[in-house]
């Protein structure tokens, strides 16, 4: 190897070490946002293919069937609007009562609708890219949930903001997404996370349980709310089986929703000003919620 090549190799190694030592988060974020249009185009291409499949399904329906479905949807919407009004009234009443009792206020959350635009991330992580970012008030560690009938299921958390209009979400099935959990019937607490051992089966692991655990299969697991990262009471999954170890036990949990089939999710954004606004009379909860809905609908 010539002297010039050795010199260049030395410079190369110095640059590599410099990159490793230097805090590159801001630079990485900036560069990631450059890739954003490409990522979104790729996602749209995938989406177009999916819509093509869906359209084929809809064309099988007759006009009368479509009209019937439309009427059903209208009825559901009207019912939900009535419930939303009731809910708004309860929220404002709750805020007034809390103030009257000087009750310590819980951090309320606001829902931001987001779509998964890409599932492509690093080879070793279970991630998805969402079409909401810092411009929508999203912050790292914001919980990501989906509606599941009357309950809300946790599916992951935001781990990185990529530019203003997208964010990376770490799915619950990843080993690094750890959640403080509690089993409904027994109230036993543990840490729920993805596990490489049962990754292929799509199962989660509820660890740090006492050796003589009383948990049984089919019991439901919820977030405990400890630590304040995730609100309490979000559904995580159902216990499938228990594995007793020498020192402790672990339960294998089936996620509440199939994590690889997610398309639309909700990001929980801390709602700092709403309660204050209600107290100050700046805006009614109805107005705040309506504006958020409009913003979400407009962006989507």
């Amino acid at each position: 190897m010539s002297r010039l090549n050795l010199l260049l190799l030395g410079v190369f190694l110095i640059i590599v070490i410099g990159l490793m030592v230097w805090d590159s988060t801001a630079l990485q974020r900036g560069l990631s946002s450059i890739f954003n249009p490409v990522t979104q185009t790729a996602a749209k291409a995938h989406e177009t293919l999916s819509i093509g499949v869906l359209e084929e399904d809809f064309t099988n329906l007759s006009l009368s069937e479509l009209q019937a479905e439309y009427r059903d949807l209208q009825r559901s919407r009207d019912a939900l609007l009535v419930r939303a009004r009731e809910f708004d009234a309860i929220v404002s009443e709750n805020a007034r009562l809390r103030e009257a009792l000087s009750f310590e206020e819980r951090t309320p959350y606001e829902l931001v609708v987001a779509q998964i635009i890409s599932r492509k991330g690093s080879s070793w992580y279970e991630t998805a890219i969402l079409n909401r970012g810092s411009a929508h008030g999203i912050q790292p560690d914001s919980p990501v949930v989906v509606a599941m009938g009357k309950e809300v299921a946790l599916v992951g958390r935001v781990t990185q903001l990529v530019g203003e209009t997208s964010a990376t979400m770490l799915l619950l099935s990843d080993e690094m997404c750890q959640v403080a959990a509690v089993v409904e019937e027994t109230q036993e607490q543990g840490i729920l996370s993805g596990t490489p051992d049962f990754h292929d089966e799509g199962l989660l692991q509820l660890g740090f349980l006492p050796r003589e655990t009383t948990i049984r299969p089919q019991q439901q697991v919820f977030t405990s709310g400890d630590g304040g990262l995730f609100p309490a009471g979000l559904v995580l999954g159902t216990v499938l089986r228990i594995e007793n170890g020498i020192l402790d036990s672990q339960a294998l949990v089936e996620p509440a929703v199939p994590l690889h089939k997610l398309e639309e999710v909700f990001i929980l954004r801390p709602q700092v000003n709403t309660a204050q606004n209600i107290r100050d009379g700046n805006s009614s909860p109805e107005e705040t919620d309506t504006s958020t809905e409009q913003e979400n609908a407009g962006d989507l």
Partner: peptide, 23 residues
């Protein structure tokens, strides 16, 4: 390598179930 790291490296908050720390 620079572009690969910029696109495919995912900074994870070294968060535990109970608290999050620096990304």
């Amino acid at each position: 390598g620079f572009l690969w790291d910029a696109r495919y490296q995912i900074p994870l908050e070294a968060s535990t179930a109970l608290a999050s720390s620096v990304a």
